[in-house]
Design a protein around this nucleic acid. Sequence first.
DNA 1: AGTCCTTTGAAGTCC
DNA 2: GGACTTCAAAGGACT
Length: 608
Amino acid sequence: MPQLNGGGGDDLGANDEMISFKDEGEQEEKISENSAAERDLAEVKSSLVNESETQQNSSSDSEAERRPPPRPDTFRDKSRDSLEEAAKRQEGGLFKNPAYPGYPFIMIPDLTSPYLPNGSLSPTARTYLQMKWPLLDVQAGSLQSRQAMKDARSPSPGHIVSNKVPVVQHPHHVHPLTPLITYSNEHFTPGNPPPHLQADVDPKTGIPRPPHPPDISPYYPLSPGTVGQIPHPLGWLVPQQGQPVYPITTGGFRHPYPTALTVNASMSSFLSSRFPPHMVPPHHSLHTTGIPHPAIVTPQVKQESSQSDVGSLHSSKHQDSKKEEEKKKPHIKKPLNAFMLYMKEMRAKVVAECTLKESAAINQILGRRWHALSREEQAKYYELARKERQLHMQLYPGWSARDNYVGGYGKKKKRKRDKQPGESNEHNECYLNPCLSLPPITDLSAPKKCRARFGLDQQSNWCGPCRRKKKCIRYIQGEGSCVSPPSSDGSLLDSSPSSPTMLDSPPRDSKPQTEQTQPLSLTLKPDPLARLCMPQSPLTESPSRKSSNLPATICQNGVDHNHQSNPLQSVPYSLSLAQPSTSFLSSPRPLSGPQQLQPLSLVTKSLE
DNA sequence: AGTCCTTTGAAGTCC
DNA sequence: GGACTTCAAAGGACT
């Protein structure tokens, strides 16, 4: 797969990502300090690239059986540790991978990968094999032949090599905006049984799910319009929350895969699973079985998949038919970036740990956790994202992100982020109200706080991220996260980069997260997001959405800008707010007074 | 029903 | 090349 082999062109943002790593958190001044760490990360990423290249280039059994060079123990162990919790959750799951559990990405089940041999998978390789999807025995002629080839080529795990494929997602499970593939394994968590297990009723629609007709093929033999109607035979296994799955099958290929792609049989299956033929450029010779891809959402699938074919066939009006065609025009979604991949994986965990459901709040937590991730772990997601983009590019050479610009560039269709720092009242709120010393989290989305604060002529005062058009790390200082056990992904779930050290030099050093930060401030500062973890979060009790912005009612310094009426103070969970210095968190470190007060200073400074 | 919120990153356009 | 915009996921909240 020459075009995938980066050789030189395989960077696809890798450099930028590295830069982003470096720059976020004002790393410019600390480049020398962190040079070693940078090298570490570079090595990690390099190894990741090498892995992918090796996977792409390896097609022989010998290579397939070749063990990858041992990865740094820190990386491996950390990865294992980081997902230990997920592993526990996955106990009893369909695919147990004790070494690297809980990693749900399905991107690159490279059957020719040297990592596939049992027991020798690197964390990264395992990453791509953690497809804890329900499997389904599939009998397919072409599939068998291809399967035989794959079997001969690689001693891949059974769930990959065998002719078992994840079942088709029942349409009722498909959230309109949900891709047809899930990166999250949370929904398969045994301990989190889907509601329809007990009652075969769609939790959202309340519509009873029809039992699976035994004579219907579980994967996509039908027309695209009917694909979504296929009731999968393992409906009880279908992930909830609209996390659909769809078959990974190699049987659907009408033609042999292009040379570049046949190198990687698993990628073939992956591509076939992700990209339906009507979406795939002809030269890719993908089959036409209509296997949906998470990146593809047809209007019919989004809404009602039942009327696609019949409706168009019986449409007598050309205009209508044209419109329908336009509607049918599948929507190729953007490939997920690293953070999105991370969110997909971790969202469910955060939801479970924080008893939160509001995505905005969860995303805030995830954003913090993302920053708290170690370089290695972030690199892992960057690599996944890079591969995602590669696949996307290969499958849709002509696709452009512009295609998804609904209103066209400059024409805002949905978002209205154009509030300039000066024209919105966010700063006024922040500065005038002592309890808002920590700006509303909405402000976090407002870029360039330093810009607003210092102006263009004082860029030297800007924080690094602001200089790079990133989030203002000064502005978000003091932001907290939910109170919860340390994250299994290596980041503290409630770890907060609010620590000065953390913010100014986010987890860019190679130390494990637990060593990096454990900032005392985390346990001391009132974490605005801590509210999110409250079982009865007042998040939504605000009359308006604006006021529901998490930190709006939380004072940065926690000492006491809390609203007197802040319900958190009376809520047992309000550890970080009501009893900032003692009861909270199981931080092994003793909390000392001075340390307690430290973190707040920066905020004051930023507000200054 | 449609949009917003909220996060980060990628990619596009505009100047 | 900087500045800016949109979209990707998610689901509750809001209009």
